[in-house]
Design a protein around this nucleic acid. Structure first.
Lengths: 189, 189
DNA sequence: CCGCTAAAGCAGAGCGGTTTGCTTTAGTGA
DNA sequence: TCACTAAAGCAAACCGCTCTGCTTTAGCGG
């Protein structure tokens, strides 16, 4: 259930293999395209036998999902005292996550699997993407404010960012990310 | 260059094969998931030798792109006299395109290829998606109006639709599609 | 330090998509 | 109608991902 406690024998070797594989996935996702990101390729880069990956993770999607989950959790939002500032930071950070080399690869991996797998995989992907947003909203509510709904923020901030990154729309930079937040506020003001 | 004029011998058999393959792709995309949508599968369904598809289209992405292009062009927008009505119709139609069985498969196909291919493929995909929007905007300008920019409509209408369909967000229906347009107008009003 | 066993390594088989050389079919123009 | 040839069919080889049985390594508890 928990990736941090691999059940039986978390000792040195398993941990080393896991770390090497995670690193290999991150590296390869950054330098190769999605089509060349295969389990044998990851195994070779990690200096590990492919069989090990097949047995521990089963599918490439599962492995990518795990690595993506680590990426999502290691960078906790700083949480300032202002909703707009928080949202801008979130937007900029999300854009950075998506545009960094291979950042979109994990998103691709989630979109590709078959329908049944897709549901759970995308749930997780969406939940991870919105975790930062939830934190921002929670902080806002904690200050007695009534922030926009999560759905609204998805529509107005996250969706445009994903769309523009996926379609490589020019001019999709930090300033644009902040503009998305600004438009949201100029409307409700 | 042009899919409608296959260069040399557009006669009966080639046309039949092309039609059978296109139909097979459409059918399989609707009933199978992306992972099972392979060239051999398409060939079998179309009653055609896989070699033929490999030689004529080369890759599955190219084939999917061609089929998607046909889908995009066959349904011309009706074009009413009101911008908001046109946009609502466009939003509902786009949502229908994305949510119909296998509708997202073509989008997946565009996201998957390697980076270099991706650029051109996505350009085409985006151009196709925005062709209907362009027509709506052109009609609006023809009436002497000053409609929102294409970028704005992408951010506020198209992006949320794609995002919600890809992530299977519940409650993404026609009413929601119209709400996106409504919010756009309530803001600028 | 030693035995136990989970986990990694290894070799080989299997499977399916892809490629290739050649043959056959059938549109096209004379 | 007939020759020409583009395009489809066919069969076999190829290649790379995946799976399986077995061996080897090394963490862990006694």
């Amino acid at each position: 259930m928990n990736a941090d406690t691999p059940a039986k024998r978390p000792g040195g070797r398993s941990a080393r293999v896991q770390a090497a594989v995670h690193q290999a996935v991150t590296d390869l996702a950054a330098e190769r395209d999605a089509a060349q990101l295969t389990i044998p390729a990851v195994a070779e880069r990690a200096g590990v036998n492919p069989t090990t990956i097949y047995r521990r993770w089963g599918t490439l999607q599962a492995l990518l999902a795990e690595v993506a989950a680590l990426h999502g959790t290691d960078a906790q939002p700083p949480s300032s005292g202002d909703l707009r500032t928080d949202l801008e930071a979130y937007a900029v950070r999300t854009l950075a996550d998506l545009t960094r080399p291979g950042g979109i690869a994990f998103f691709q991996a989630e979109v590709s699997p078959d329908i049944d797998e897709r549901r759970s995989g995308l749930r997780e992907c969406l939940r991870r993407a919105t975790a930062g947003l939830d934190a921002v909203l929670e902080a806002s509510r904690g200050r007695g404010e009534t922030p926009p709904s999560l759905e609204r923020l998805l529509d107005r901030i996250v969706a445009p960012l994903y769309f523009r990154v996926v379609f490589s729309v020019p001019g999709t930079d930090d300033a644009y990310a902040r503009t998305l937040v600004a438009e949201l506020f100029s409307q409700s003001a």
